[in-house]
Design a protein around this nucleic acid. Structure first.
Lengths: 134, 134
DNA sequence: GACGAATGCAACCGTAATTGTTACTTATGC
DNA sequence: GCATAAGTAACAATTACGGTTGCATTCGTC
């Protein structure tokens, strides 16, 4: 896998789970299907569990499954659960001493905030169960 | 400087130039003001020159200045000139063999395309001369 | 024409971020 | 008890990016 793959992995996995909720899947199976590593899978899915989208169980018959109905999980839920932003915020410059730079940063940061919110709104329009059916 | 600083550097420089168009500035002066390196400045401003926003001259009295009136240069022009996207596109996976993954990628990519266009539209609302006067 | 000052450009280094990997611990069901 | 799974920490490999150096080229001035 390359960069920015966490969201891809998360969405891919949840979408598959939406096809058969209740089925328990191991991180090894998921990693195999996604072409990555079980530890990476657990890292990413761990975030989704923290956000209440998944549950996991240890031990013999353990694994991962959806914590809610797939109709109640939107792409935005997944995006927010990972709290990585696909909309790059301006680099966190500590002291914009230059007034021109300050005005610029303020303007651009405002636009980026709006755009990020638009993205979330758009992602919230689709659930992981809707994705499967074309 | 940290990450994603090319756009910051470009906008900062152009905004300053908008305050006194026609003045020739060297990459060394610009780098000094921006707290970076002359070579980095030339790298970034070179892109803006390719896009027709700046002109540069070699030699003794050389340097950089605006190629057009600052009222005719929008933040979107600068953003597009650098052709770096602040909206992360999904990782360019070559073969989405899995049908679920294919549907997902298509859906998310469509949203990202729209968001990117929204960003450009928003940035096009502001010129580099408007930024200065808050 | 020689010299200094500027861009243009290529190559490389250092650092930060991310993914991949290994190893080990913990928990669970058989 | 033992196999199997997640949980986690630590480390390696890769990538991206800014920064740096060096040198060629161009232009004005003496």
């Amino acid at each position: 896998m390359k960069r920015n793959s966490r969201l891809s992995l998360a969405l891919h996995t949840l979408s598959h789970m939406a096809g058969d909720p209740g089925q328990m899947r191991t991180s090894a199976d998921i990693a195999d299907h996604a072409g990555t590593n079980p530890v990476v899978v657990r890292r990413v899915l761990g975030k989704l569990r923290e956000a209440g989208l998944l549950t996991s169980e240890k031990g013999h018959a353990g694994g991962w499954k959806l914590a809610r109905s797939p109709e109640e999980i939107t792409l935005a839920d997944v995006y927010l659960a990972l709290d990585e932003s696909l909309v790059a915020t301006e680099s966190d410059e500590p002291a914009p001493s230059c007034s021109v730079e300050y005005a610029l940063h303020k303007r651009v940061a405002g636009v980026m905030r709006d755009i990020e919110q638009s993205l979330i709104d758009r992602l919230a329009e689709t659930t992981i169960s809707e994705v499967r059916g074309h």
